[in-house]
Simulated scan of single mutants.
Amino acid sequence: MPTPKYRFISLIYKDLFLNTNAARNAGFPLSTRRATGCGKALSACFLLLLPAFAQAQDARAQLDAAAQQQVAAELKSAAQKAGWKGMTFTVDNNLPNSLGKLAACPNEPQLRLLETPATVTARRRFEASCAGQSGWPVSFISQPRVYLPTVVASGAIERGQTLDAAQLKLAPMEIGKSSRGYFTDIAEVTGKTARRRLRADQPLTPALLDGALLVRRGQQVRIVASQDGIQASAVGESLANGKQDEVIRVKNLRSQKIIEAKVTASGEVSSIF
């Protein structure tokens, strides 16, 4: 008895269905062959590669940690010598891409500076070595960024105004970007005068300030006169503001004479003959 036509069609679909299932369970890339070995489970193959990835990560992590430690020690030593207080820093290491193929060093890698940095904030060129290991030494760049609390204006300060502590505050600043200098102590700035108008939160530099006023107009001052080893003093009145070593006009309150005198200290001038 001949097989009905619809039974041939059913057998074709059945074969197609079985082959499709085989393909769905195949290894990567897709194949019509049944998966065996590593292709049977892609995740198993990936797990075999993890130790190599771990080694690459370890080599990179080793160099990053070694550079962080060495640069941090240098910065802390420099801060102690300079008397810096409240210093913070970051260290950015530009590690080469070749570390992805480099096995980790069994021991700690040894770092050597290839050149002495010009300043504490300058970048450093390191060579890292690992005795007996192929692929070493490795060179890379390390860039520290150092931040210090520096003196800034707490509000607007007008030109010619004498600064007092209430007008100043400390704020962190990256000192490597401050080519014009900075102050780290409010006491260093108190009493100085602004050469131009200062805006709020503006970092103060030596170029923005004049020396402190040691004598003010209308203030009583001590006039000191010296000649041939003999020194005499008198009370006077300042007729102008004066900073260190400036020559101003002063009235002798006893003789009422007006003389020129050089500012030598706070509230004191020296007569000029």
Rank of each mutant, 00 (worst) to 15 (best):
T3I: 15
G229S: 04
A79C: 11
A59N: 06
Y13M: 13
L11A: 01
K192S: 13
E127M: 07
A200G: 01
S266G: 02
P117L: 01
E74S: 02
G242K: 00
S10A: 11
A200C: 03
F8K: 05
L198K: 01
T116M: 14
V151T: 01
N25A: 15
P144A: 15
A54E: 13
T90W: 09
K5Q: 15
V120S: 04
G39P: 03
L113E: 12
R60I: 01
A207C: 05
D164F: 15
R33W: 08
L253Y: 00
I175T: 06
K257N: 03
A128K: 03
Q256W: 03
Q244I: 06
A52Q: 09
N25Q: 11
N93A: 11
Q220I: 08
P96W: 13
L209T: 01
K14A: 14
V263H: 00
G100P: 00
Q202W: 15
A261M: 14
T150G: 11
E237K: 01
L163M: 09
T116W: 00
L148F: 00
T264A: 05
R196T: 08
D164R: 09
A52V: 03
S43V: 14
K40W: 10
L48A: 15
A232L: 07
R24Q: 11
M1L: 13
L102P: 06
P137I: 06
A59C: 06
R125Y: 13
S226A: 07
A194S: 14
R33A: 14
K257L: 05
E158C: 01
L209C: 04
V250A: 06
P117W: 10
E268M: 03
T205E: 11
E127Q: 15
K262F: 02
P149D: 06
P109F: 02
P51M: 13
G155F: 12
E246T: 01
K81N: 14
R216N: 07
R24T: 09
P4G: 09
S43K: 07
L95S: 05
L11T: 09
L111W: 05
L208N: 04
T90R: 08
T20Y: 08
A52H: 15
A103V: 02
N241K: 03
N94E: 14
F126N: 09
K76T: 13
I248V: 03
P203S: 04
T162L: 06
T190Q: 09
G135S: 10
V215W: 02
V224D: 00
L170D: 01
N19H: 04
T119R: 10
I186T: 12
E188Q: 11
G155S: 09
D15A: 08
Q167H: 08
L95I: 03
A73L: 06
A153F: 05
S178F: 12
R60D: 10
V221C: 01
R216F: 04
E246Q: 03
L50H: 01
P106C: 04
V235I: 13
V250D: 00
A122F: 04
G135K: 05
V247S: 00
L50F: 03
L48N: 11
V152T: 07
P109G: 03
G132C: 12
G37L: 13
F8R: 07
A165L: 07
A61Q: 07
T119L: 05
Q219P: 00
L148W: 02
E260D: 08
T116Q: 05
S139N: 14
